[in-house]
Amino acid sequence: MKGKINETTQNNPFLPELARIISTHYLTKDVKFFQVRFSDMEKALSFRYEPGQFAMVSVLGAGEAPFCLSSSPSRPGLLEFCIQKKGTLTNALFRLRENDLVGVRGPYGNGFPMGDMEGKDVLIVMGGLGVAPLRSVLLYCLDNRDLFNRVILLHGARTPSDMIFRDEFMALKERVDLECFLTVDEDDTGTWKENIGVVTTLFPKLKKIDPSQAYGLVCGPPVMYKFVIKEFIQLNIPKNQILMTLERRMKCGVGKCGHCAIDYIYTCLDGPVFTYWDVIHMRELI
């Protein structure tokens, strides 16, 4: 080959940075919590992101996949993920321990419009693994509590032992500046003192909300969206103030591999946070 070129160096958006697992533990029987920090101190401290954004996490030999950041940018330095055991990569992740290395690149996606939500009521509804992206929003709101009006959390799980971050949320119930409601579909322990029923049974407990001044956020298993959105609409929250985050298969995170395409948008560039108005227009979204 006459045209051989020796070296090309260019900004490479596909290049992962090494990150060290600082701590990891089980949240439920198949969901694990990972706290990681970039090996490079400079990078660890300069990494900026928005709640709702995601990162590509890789394990050598097992591949790479998108995971939303569960930590809040208001607590820089450490990145947190909560990850369910599902496929090849997550199985490999579950085998790793503290001090092991993973590849991380990002942050990607649009994130929640935290600026627009300032001064408004923030109503967060989460179920199951939907905790992962919305915990970031919740912590951000609590860390910047004076920026927001009411902060309301509705959290549902199948059983008490399935409730991700149960202890953390139980402790939050003590806060007077947060309206925190927890529920389980069924109580198999007999010791659950909170509400029993699906997450929508928590809506009647809410004090009156001024819908034009409120944002409704939802993330959870597919079946949840339909019912929660119905409640939001009943509360008269405008469609473009109802926000949700979606997942798709992704191989790049930067709008090149095509896998997350929906109609004419890419979930990785234009999402993963969408308004209900977007969803009505793009039939394939949910």
Binding site: L60, G61, G63, E64
Partner: peptide
């Protein structure tokens, strides 16, 4: 332009 990414261990080497 769509592509897939594969991570294939090199046999006999730690890479």
């Amino acid at each position: 332009n769509c592509y897939n990414v594969e991570d294939k261990p090199v046999l006999g080497e730690n890479c």
